[in-house]
Amino acid sequence: MRRAITGLVLSVVCALVPAVATRAQEPRFLPQGAQVYDRKTGLTWQRCTLGQQWRGERCDGTATPYTWDVARTLYRDGWRLPTMAELETLIDPERKARRVHPNIDTTLFPYPTVVPTQSRPLRFPFYWSSVPTRGCISQSRRGCAYVLDLYSINNTDVDNLPREALAIVRLVKAAPASSPGVDSNSSSNSVAVYGDRFEASGNEVLDRRTGLRWQRCNTGQTWQAGLGCTGVPRYYTYDDAARAAGGGWRLPTKDELMSLVEKGRPLHIDTDAFLDVHKDKATYWTSTPYVGGGRQYFCVNFPFGDSDNCDASGTRALRLVRDQR
């Protein structure tokens, strides 16, 4: 009897193992004709770069280069520009670890064919993200936006380009609000979720890890739905920065501001959640005094991902914080 029961149990286990293994081996990306569904993020991507068409085995035609302002108008039938965080999810970690060039699966997402225009050179093969920034030189003074080279040898070529520059586009369909990097800025009260940590609503970003609420834009700027951070950041002496706080907002401590540092990210901060962190002037005040002579306070330099001591008479950027209500 015992042998019979043991045999029955083994039979059931053996029957279940292949099914479990099959589920475990399910591919992350599911091709669906001209679209690719990402099981991990819930996002659906266009298989071809915009301007090309899927012909069963390849993308025909040439990719169309756009300025950022034109690219932002290409919303249709739920398709939209991806955030930077969403673009980075297309990087295949296994290919990157094995140094396979490029780090994106070209069977799923074929390499684009692009013909630059004679009048305006194309910054190829950068893809536009929906995330604006003012951290670069723009002849039109309209600011810049983040781009990603999906086909570079390291596939981590993050940069920003002037909005009047030309780059190419791969559109994405909106995912559920719980998916990483989903940005639904259709109104000032809409919520954007970035990974499992940050939740943005208007000009505020909630850090679920610490419970703190941060200003999304630099002090001196204003958040506008669909446009991001508008206006020009202000740079303060320490005393002026302390006076700028109010209404529950305050200068962060050194530890609080350093909690936003994420090594390995562009500028060492989540630039989808926190817009307009400048490459050249991205040092922010904290309220923590530096004991070492003179009147100094700690400040955080995001491009270096570290803190330093800053003289109170110097000018620095400001991002205020408040405790969760």
Rank of each mutant, 00 (worst) to 15 (best):
Y151D: 08
T210H: 03
Y235A: 13
K279R: 15
L171F: 01
Q324Y: 15
D157Y: 10
R265N: 14
Q118S: 15
R216Y: 02
D272R: 02
V205D: 02
D239W: 09
V70C: 00
P252W: 01
H278F: 10
V232D: 11
C310R: 07
D69F: 08
S140A: 15
E88N: 04
W79K: 00
V114D: 09
D276L: 08
I269L: 06
T237G: 08
L10M: 07
W54H: 12
N103R: 10
C310E: 11
K254A: 10
Q296L: 06
E57I: 13
R23N: 08
K263R: 14
E262P: 07
K281F: 12
Y111I: 08
M258Y: 09
S186G: 12
R213T: 03
S307V: 09
G33Y: 13
R98S: 12
L212T: 03
E94F: 03
D276M: 03
G211H: 00
G293H: 10
Q53D: 13
A200T: 01
R208L: 00
K173H: 10
L150A: 08
V172I: 05
Q224N: 08
E57R: 15
W223F: 12
C217S: 00
Q296H: 11
C144Y: 14
G181Q: 07
T64P: 01
L43N: 10
R213W: 04
A242Y: 05
A4R: 09
N160K: 12
N309D: 13
R120V: 12
T237V: 04
L10C: 07
W45V: 03
T315I: 15
L16R: 05
R134S: 15
N309S: 14
V172T: 06
A245G: 09
D159Y: 15
T73Q: 12
Q53H: 14
K263I: 11
W54K: 12
G135F: 11
T288Y: 07
P252K: 03
T288H: 06
V36W: 03
P112T: 07
T286N: 06
I137L: 14
T41Y: 09
F109E: 02
P180D: 05
D183H: 00
A192R: 01
G231R: 02
V232A: 08
R234T: 11
A245W: 04
L50K: 11
V193L: 02
W214Y: 04
F109T: 05
V169H: 13
L10I: 08
E26K: 11
N301V: 13
T288E: 07
Q221I: 03
V169C: 10
